[in-house]
């Protein structure tokens, strides 16, 4: 039952994506199109989300454990390396090409089944490829 929090979080996230216009690849590419007709909407989305999340982090620092499970499981690494920068750069290229990041693509599956599933299946294939290539050498 405690996993239901995932459903509520996903619902809110999907609703936010839909309300904010971030499920429109053309609008997302408009934000990245600084040399053309720049559309700053995405900056407002990020601003609103970061503001609320900053409050959440302030609360989190005063909590000993999450409300519904034993402990926090948060990324602890501070390493800034070629993997991080190369991965983010690759993701940026894909984001610029399609105007889609993983969340809006998955939320779009019910509205634009063909286009969205082409992207999502290709993304899963990319993740699978990475997993194969990233196997530790033995």
């Amino acid at each position: 039952m405690r996993h239901l929090i995932g459903l509520f979080s996903g619902l809110l996230f999907g609703a936010g994506l839909a309300l904010s216009g971030m499920m429109d690849p053309a609008r997302v590419r408009g934000f990245l199109d600084v040399a053309g007709h720049w559309d700053p909407t995405l900056a407002f989305v990020m601003g609103g989300a970061v503001l609320v999340m900053a409050l959440a982090w302030a609360i989190q620092r005063r909590m000993h454990r999450p409300a519904l499970c034993e402990e926090f499981a948060l990324p602890g690494t501070r390493l800034i390396d070629a993997r991080l920068i190369g991965g983010a750069a690759l993701f940026g290229v894909g984001w610029g090409l399609g105007g889609l990041c993983p969340g809006p693509a998955i939320a779009s599956l019910v509205f634009h089944p063909l286009d969205a599933s082409v992207f999502v299946v290709a993304m899963l294939a990319g993740m699978a490829l990475f997993r194969l290539a990233d196997r530790p050498h033995t």
């Binding site: 996230f13 309300l19 407002f44 989305v45 609103g48 989300a49 609320v52 959440a56 609360i59 499970c69």
Partner: peptide, 19 residues
């Protein structure tokens, strides 16, 4: 954008503080 962003922030907050 701002309203949607706030919902996204609430989603993240729920995941962080709940799970």
């Amino acid at each position: 954008g701002l309203a949607g962003g706030i919902l996204i922030g609430l989603a993240g907050a729920l995941m962080l503080l709940g799970a």
